[in-house]
Design a protein around this nucleic acid. Structure first.
Lengths: 348, 348
DNA sequence: TTGTAAGCGTTATCAA
DNA sequence: TTGATAACGCTTACAA
């Protein structure tokens, strides 16, 4: 490996000067600078980042904690994270979050990260405080069920979003509405359920405990859950169902197809997130558009501010969303009149 | 920050002993070991990984280069990578590969990675050799168009896969077949096109240059491309089209739907990769199942061997695939008889 | 404008 | 079985 020492020798200067040049200090004579630069090039020198981190206490790396890397919601966000991080010259370490191994994160990230980005996980308070003490800020994208005051949140307003959904259903004559959410009460999808409940109260819609289906956020389990529901009840007790995410909405839709339940005539289905797939099913799924890329950008911006000790206290952010009405939701009765399907390329 | 020094003082031993304990050397008296462990726990000490890397020249990090993190093919693989890497206590640094910034990778990864995992990118030979010299192995998942001998490849046999596709079409009475591939000739999807061409020759199917549609691997562009094709020709010159990946297959399918071309009666569509979405369109897409998770596992296994200098020279691997026949492909003429749709949960 | 040298938190060699 | 101590490659006062 070529080290800074080699460069110094080659250029006939001291190691300090090489550092000055690399770090763009403006105290180097132009001719020396050029000589050093030349040596760096000739030798193909690159500074060792581990050594630099050790010295500066800055790693230029952020940890990103996933629930499921295979979920297009999470990868969509990470796309934004990566792009913006790259702009700032930061690298991202991706880890799947495993609750049982939360403790291990302290080891894994020690001296390896300047900040942690969560995708809706609820850290133990003790963990948050540990990183707090180290001066490692934590930002959560999408609201966790249990928020800690030092964890900043970047998200949309889910309560408002749920209100929009229910109003849309109300306008279409629906009164009874089901929900499919997450079995795990500490999963961030559970937060959406909580906001759904609030919105139900606010709008005066009808929802009952046993109209709640529980899956794990994946398409497959939602499919099975809904299939079971359709098998067991001769007639659905609700005319519309809100799904905590699009994957489950599509699972529900698939189940309806296979069991001969017409969507939206017999059941309106509404999802959340607006993943690509939601616009390519038949019928296409009505959903809340979650600005994933932008959310990712914003999280990195917040993070950059947070790690910059000079700046003011780090803040979270609440971004705009909208309800994307497609064909899976319609009037409650038989008076549904076919909507025109939007071309898929309009959906980012 | 708690350092090893603090632990040493607290436990009343020298720093060396603390290191011995941490690194499980078996030369520490049991009572001392316990005392040290106790101090570590009480102080909440975690070794600084940057410092360790600097000393040991081992980072326990691998770099993973993506083309597009939003592509379910790539994230599916990364899921396998992450799971296996975690088993081995390795972390993954994810970066989107940008050709123009290939040079920068040297800087970004200097002292930060023990190995590089590519997702089908073609590195400049000079880049490969640079990392070679540093003893940083490179493994490519899915074959790049330009392979360098030191880059080990983990992939399926695409030539054989293309043969399977064409034979399936042949058995269903097709003779003329189109292809939709990547506009970029250095994109790994281009490799699949090359293997398609070989297979066309081998099977005696008919393919012509202007039956080649070009997109960028995304659904949206494939949709536009196919829409254009359908608009411009009163009748398609081929009865089947092979798509370099499923996303494009779905784009093609969407275009057919919107333009009133019946699938598979008027056009059989076959994709590659078997992403989840491919089994949830109507009709579901016939495709090559690519064992993404397993491929990810295998790549990490190869990598672990490669970084273990003691072991033999690193090797690549060729894994098993299969053709998953669904409803988007069928007999050429009007004699198509509806196939039963498989329940989606059978498709991993 | 440049050089010397201390120190970042480890590991590992060599003595004790 | 333990303890000094020299690296590892870098940044940064401080001195020259």
């Amino acid at each position: 490996m070529v080290t800074r020492n080699d460069v110094a020798k080659h250029a006939g200067v001291s190691v300090a000067v090489v550092s000055y040049v690399i770090n763009n200090k403006n105290n180097v004579k132009e001719s020396t600078r050029r000589r050093v630069l030349q040596s760096i090039k000739e030798l193909g020198y690159n500074p060792n980042l581990a050594a630099r981190s050790l010295k500066t206490k800055r790693t230029n790396q952020f940890g990103v904690l996933f629930n499921n890397l295979g979920n297009p919601f999470e990868t969509g966000i990470s796309l934004g994270l990566e792009a913006k991080a790259r702009e700032y010259g930061q690298s991202l370490i991706f880890q799947t979050f495993v609750r049982e191994e939360e403790e291990k994160l302290k080891t894994i990230f020690m001296g390896r990260t300047d900040g942690l980005i969560l995708l809706g996980q609820s850290f133990q308070p003790e963990t948050v405080e540990y990183f707090d003490r180290l001066g490692i800020p934590i930002i959560s994208i999408t609201s966790p069920v249990e928020a800690h005051p030092s964890v900043k949140i970047v998200d949309i307003d889910w309560h408002q979003a749920m209100l929009d959904i229910l109003k849309h259903l109300q306008q279409n004559g629906h009164r009874k509405v089901g929900f499919i959410g997450s079995r795990m009460r500490d999963h961030h999808l559970h937060y959406r359920y909580q906001q759904f409940l609030r919105a139900v109260k606010d709008t005066g819609m009808e929802f009952q405990e046993d109209w709640l289906l529980l899956a794990d956020g994946r398409l497959e389990t939602a499919y099975m859950e809904m299939s079971g529901k359709l098998d067991s009840s001769s007639r659905l007790p609700f005319s519309a169902i809100v799904c905590a995410n699009d994957l489950m909405a599509i699972g529900v839709l698939s189940a309806c197809k296979d069991k001969g339940t017409n969507v939206p005539e017999e059941l309106s289905i509404i999802g959340c997130e607006n993943i690509l797939m939601a616009s390519h099913t038949t019928p296409a799924v009505t959903t809340i558009h979650y600005p994933r890329r932008l959310i990712g950008f914003t999280a990195i911006e917040c993070m950059m501010k947070a790690v910059d000790k000079e700046s003011t206290k780090p803040e979270g952010a609440t971004l705009a969303y909208h309800l994307e009405v497609r064909d899976s939701s319609g009037r409650r009765q038989g008076d549904f009149s076919g909507l025109v399907r939007k071309p898929p390329f309009l959906n980012l």
